[in-house]
Design a protein around this nucleic acid. Sequence first.
DNA 1: CGCACCACAATTTTT
DNA 2: TTGTGGTGCG
Length: 787
Amino acid sequence: MATDFEQRYIKARKSVVEADFMHLNEMQRKAVMTTQGPLLLLAGAGSGKTTVLINRILNILRYGSASDTTQLPPNASEEDIETMCGNNTVAARLAAAYEPCPPWNILAITFTNKAAAELKSRLEANLGAVANDIWAQTFHSACVRILRRNAERIGFSTSFTIYDSQDSQSVIKRIIKALNIDEKNYPPRMILSVISKEKDKLHLADHYLEIAKQSGDMRQTVIANCYKAYEKQLRDADAMDFDDLILNAVRLLQENDDIRSYYQKKFKYVLVDEYQDTNHLQYLLVSLLSGGYENICVVGDDDQSIYKFRGATIENILSFENEYKNARVIKLEQNYRSTAHILAAANAVIKNNTERKGKSLWTEDEEGELPHLHLAYNQDEEAQYVAEKILEGYAEGMRWDDHAVLYRLNSQSNAMEYAFKRRGIPYKVYGGMRFFDRAEIKDMLAYLNVISNPQDDLRLLRIINTPTRGIGNTSIEKLAQIANEEGTSIYDVINRCEEYPQLKTPSAHLRLFIDMINNLIEKSGTMPVDELYDEVVIRTGYLKSLEAKDTQENVTKAENVKELKSNILNYISESTDTTLFGFLDEISLYTDLDNLDKDADCVSMMTIHSSKGLEFPVVFLVGAEEGLFPSARSLGSHEDMEEERRLCYVAISRAKERLYISSAMQRMLMGKTTNNRISRFAEEIPDEHLKKDYIPKGRSFSDTSFDAEPRRQQPQSKFAPVITSKTAAATLPDFKTGDSIMHKSFGEGEITKMTPMGGDFLVEISFNCVGTKRLMLKAAARLMEKL
DNA sequence: CGCACCACAATTTTT
DNA sequence: TTGTGGTGCG
């Protein structure tokens, strides 16, 4: 039973902390001040989740457990209470702090580099250099950091190599060939996915092989043998794939009491972002790392769990309260992103799911515009509709990058791109080939990897004959065979190639190659990474071979090779660890999704999946059709359907001001034309929150099955017909450079420049009041007249 | 060894 | 419809 003094002390202390977080709403503040023990934070879309995470960390750093404990300092006095209630805020804060936490005892885990970088930079903005001591990292980079110290305990060197998914795939393909397995029945992708699932269950290859044998299932046994070979090859190469990073970190912690207790003592506070995306292994990792103090805060939104297919289990979030009996739960439901109508639409859709914690977003924001539903005849008309709306928005003064087009399948971008190109709308498609996936970049990184770890057969094989240096397939097969028989690496065999009579023919070429590699290895000991890279580019003859043929493709490749240099320089300037190891670590966990945002003013096009976490003033959700979204594969399964619905919820909740949903009655997919009904998700939005934009004559929304019409017959649309280059020229409004004009929104101005662009003109108008604006002529003309 | 041609498959994706 | 990967020829 707390004494009166204790109660007053605790209350006074709490209000000191509280005063620091008055800029937050009540629930956010509650989350920030709940620092002790397990906490499940259900944070809806746009509810200020990252802000809460940051402020929670600030609270922990400044005040320790002050806002959430009944413990008093041993020397607590009446004077302290006076100080805390007094006007001297500095003194009050000092008195309130109770075991403030050093930054290096805090671990904040995210999924993506981007999220980690955002966390870091916002913490740095608040704290300065101190922020660098907080472990704000991705799951994978945190594991690498732990493994780099301790990998020897589980049979790897501390300088192990990291394989990306492409590397894993190459390894599996080689194994399929070596084991003489039929690739048709056992696609590499499938095998890798089984291996990944087994790793998620903490099953190593031997364990799985046993399970497979006992089940008597031939297929499983075949896959298990692949797993076994895969595991061996990676171990021989001193390599870990992405799953291994987590798996091995978990095993390391489970099997070594000293290491586990070191980290459990170290991490007094653990925070996990996007908890709904975690898999079983990640759950284990988090519970191991936080196992000391159990001050674990997980943040997530069960309604935004959309990665089941890659192992995420919503179970982690749903059963958090069972795992931690004393867990507290706080919901953040106030939304600061979208207008009321858009939120209502999102809520209306998601409430049809049964497997959820139950949350309902609300806003103090105004109603805003009604979301629109447009029914198009086919994907081209749909694209045209989207383009029109974007041009309207642009003419109103919005930027291109205020707009985003979201779709279920990457292949849907084609029709959009075509329409955008034709109208000169600048756009960027996300999710295509990435910089670090390009062959030339992979080649250069393979060289660096071999220099850093010559035992890495996979990377060595990648570059042994790239550029061609007279080491053909036959020689490579022989090398691999010898290495396999002797249980050594290919690098070792080449080093002693003169000893083998069967390598007599290529031995001169092999010697030249291995001397070059050895020379580079030697240099890597003393040379800074950037200079070493220059050496690699020259000495390997890679750049020379690109310059030998003057094609556009090769010019681009050469540019990319040079671009990688600027990445290295950038790394050196930002990092303390400027060794080759350090750089390779960073790069192997890096995707260039991170620098998307700072790109030029462009409309964004991406899948709904990749839009998670982003927001745009105007969102187009295209392809809202049964069979496409929800996808045909989800139709049979309740569980999958709910995941699709969550996906829809994610899409809708990206929109801040305007939401356009569209549906094509006829769509070409994979070369076949299909007729689809409007997506059930669109139907789930009640009429008071959805403006049905366009209903073709004689057809209702509920009956959209209709006889396919030839697409040349244009529907009686209120929108412009498909614009071919000819009609475009004919219908161009009559404006020219030098014209004085009056614009509805921007007032008077003069046209200073006109640039033809995809059947339209980009006009530059110098307005008297609002400065110079660049508009697309056709869209702007409606709001303009000549003076 | 490099290129051309044909067969074939084809959610969603971070690290 | 599109992209990729494997095969066969010059």
